[in-house]
Design a protein around this nucleic acid. Structure first.
Lengths: 121, 121
DNA sequence: TTGACATATGCCGATATAGGTATATAATGC
DNA sequence: GCATTATATACCTATATCGGCATATGTCAA
């Protein structure tokens, strides 16, 4: 298999969210369900561009859609962001003074793991 | 400027870290300073590939280097991950039952938006 | 039906990515 | 000096991204 390129934007939440416009879209949807034109207006982007970004977000499960008359209402679906959160969280001590006692950090990580185990469906 | 493509991998920590190999490298460096060949051995990747990934990580400030004889010792520099952490943190409630206070979340997002507005251009 | 509105999709061009192979640079030891 | 080790860089190819523009699909209203 020769000529592999960058992973698809739809491969991952990591890849989908690397695009700043897509993050902006999620930030707007965090305020609640919105039709495409609302996003177009707030982002100062052409409508087709927004529709394409929404497609990517839909393919990684970061947004859901619902038909409402001639509009399509998009909503946030945050679950796919959890892996990102879980991954970066382990690096918190590398920028925060609060996490410079290794023993404490490890203890917190362990506690957190247990909480998360309880969260699971 | 026509024909803009995906943002450079070196544009952002977001983009740099979208590549899974690069995340693996950081995970290994979290265990401490390591020479390139150590990483090559653990990742089962060709040496030039690893060197290129390290270059990307260096350009976004996620790793630092230090010469040691003929080796180059790479180390983790986590600060550039903070923006990622800060961003995803606001979405925690969308997957965790523990974060269901909408008002708090919205307030946090608003603060974040003001930061982003400075980014423009 | 016809037309206005809302959204999705098609095609285009410029860019740059990841990995591969070969080679350059650099430090060490004899 | 020369060979060996450690790492970086150059060049290649296949892929796919983002935005622009034109068009298709779909829904409502008179």
């Amino acid at each position: 298999m020769l000529g592999m390129a960058r992973a698809a934007t739809t491969a991952d939440a990591f890849n989908a969210v690397a695009e700043p416009r897509r993050r902006q879209i999620l930030d707007l949807l965090a305020g609640g369900e919105r039709p495409v034109n609302d996003l177009v207006a707030q982002l100062h982007l052409a409508q087709p561009v927004v529709s394409k970004h929404l497609r990517v977000l839909r393919e990684v499960g970061l947004v859901g859609v619902r038909d409402h008359g001639r509009q399509r209402l998009y909503r946030l679906e945050g679950q796919p962001l959890k892996p990102i959160h879980d991954w970066v969280k382990n690096y918190e001590r590398s920028w925060s003074q609060r996490f410079d006692r290794l023993d404490v950090v490890l203890e917190e990580l362990k506690e957190n793991k247990e909480e998360h185990d309880g969260d699971d469906k």
